Simulated scan of single mutants.
Amino acid sequence: MDEDDLKRGEEIKDELFRAIEESRISIIVFSKRYADLSWCLDELVKIMECRSKLGRHVLPIFYHVDPVDPSHVRKQDGDLAEAFHKHEEGIDEEKDGKKREAKQKRVEQWREALTKAANLSGHHLQITDNG
């Protein structure tokens, strides 16, 4: 939860990362547009880092992932491929070599975290005709 316990005036990202570190379990809800937001991907990297280093539990939920296969999260196909294409568009145009490397490394971390999270046993929820 990121809304109730955030201290006013604190850096949101720092507070969220601290909350992730202190959590015993993280539930990741992957949706069609999950990878559109870089902050979701940054949180995912942190969650998977805590799983690896601190032994935290992670439960992935695949919510109406298109087409109907969670492996699209693992492989970054479909909607995720489009999102990553947008994230990567400006990397090659970056003039500053250090910034370009940092941006490329960040995208690689996102891809690796998505693959690792999608390899975990999770739940696949699909929208049906009756909702």
Score class of each variant (00 low, 15 high):
residue 2 D to L: 05
residue 3 E to N: 05
residue 3 E to A: 10
residue 3 E to V: 10
residue 3 E to F: 03
residue 4 D to E: 04
residue 4 D to R: 06
residue 5 D to W: 12
residue 6 L to Q: 09
residue 7 K to A: 10
residue 7 K to W: 11
residue 7 K to S: 10
residue 8 R to C: 08
residue 9 G to F: 07
residue 10 E to D: 15
residue 11 E to N: 15
residue 11 E to V: 11
residue 12 I to Y: 06
residue 13 K to Y: 14
residue 13 K to I: 09
residue 15 E to H: 13
residue 16 L to H: 01
residue 17 F to G: 12
residue 17 F to E: 14
residue 17 F to S: 13
residue 18 R to Y: 06
residue 21 E to W: 02
residue 23 S to R: 03
residue 23 S to E: 06
residue 23 S to Y: 00
residue 24 R to K: 15
residue 25 I to P: 07
residue 25 I to N: 04
residue 26 S to I: 05
residue 29 V to I: 10
residue 29 V to G: 01
residue 30 F to V: 06
residue 31 S to F: 00
residue 32 K to V: 12
residue 32 K to N: 11
residue 33 R to I: 09
residue 35 A to E: 02
residue 35 A to R: 03
residue 36 D to Q: 14
residue 37 L to G: 14
residue 39 W to G: 01
residue 40 C to F: 05
residue 40 C to I: 01
residue 41 L to Y: 08
residue 41 L to A: 02
residue 43 E to I: 09
residue 44 L to A: 02
residue 44 L to G: 07
residue 47 I to W: 05
residue 47 I to P: 11
residue 48 M to N: 01
residue 50 C to H: 10
residue 51 R to P: 11
residue 55 G to Q: 03
residue 55 G to V: 01
residue 56 R to L: 14
residue 56 R to T: 00
residue 57 H to R: 15
residue 58 V to F: 00
residue 58 V to W: 00
residue 60 P to G: 01
residue 61 I to N: 00
residue 64 H to W: 14
residue 64 H to F: 08
residue 65 V to N: 04
residue 65 V to P: 07
residue 65 V to I: 14
residue 66 D to H: 02
residue 66 D to K: 12
residue 67 P to M: 03
residue 69 D to E: 07
residue 70 P to C: 04
residue 70 P to T: 01
residue 71 S to G: 08
residue 73 V to W: 04
residue 73 V to M: 04
residue 73 V to P: 06
residue 74 R to C: 09
residue 75 K to N: 15
residue 77 D to V: 00
residue 77 D to Y: 07
residue 77 D to C: 06
residue 77 D to R: 15
residue 79 D to V: 12
residue 80 L to M: 14
residue 80 L to Q: 10
residue 80 L to I: 14
residue 81 A to E: 11
residue 81 A to F: 02
residue 81 A to P: 04
residue 82 E to C: 09
residue 86 K to M: 03
residue 86 K to N: 08
residue 87 H to S: 08
residue 87 H to E: 01
residue 88 E to Y: 12
residue 90 G to D: 05
residue 91 I to S: 12
residue 92 D to R: 13
residue 92 D to Q: 13
residue 93 E to W: 03
residue 93 E to A: 13
residue 93 E to Y: 09
residue 97 G to L: 13
residue 97 G to I: 01
residue 99 K to F: 07
residue 100 R to C: 10
residue 100 R to V: 03
residue 103 K to H: 10
residue 105 K to M: 10
residue 107 V to L: 08
residue 107 V to C: 08
residue 107 V to M: 05
residue 109 Q to A: 15
residue 109 Q to L: 13
residue 110 W to C: 07
residue 111 R to P: 10
residue 112 E to F: 03
residue 112 E to G: 01
residue 114 L to A: 05
residue 117 A to Q: 11
residue 120 L to F: 00
residue 121 S to N: 03
residue 125 L to S: 07
residue 127 I to V: 15
residue 127 I to Y: 04
residue 128 T to C: 08
residue 130 N to A: 09
residue 130 N to L: 13
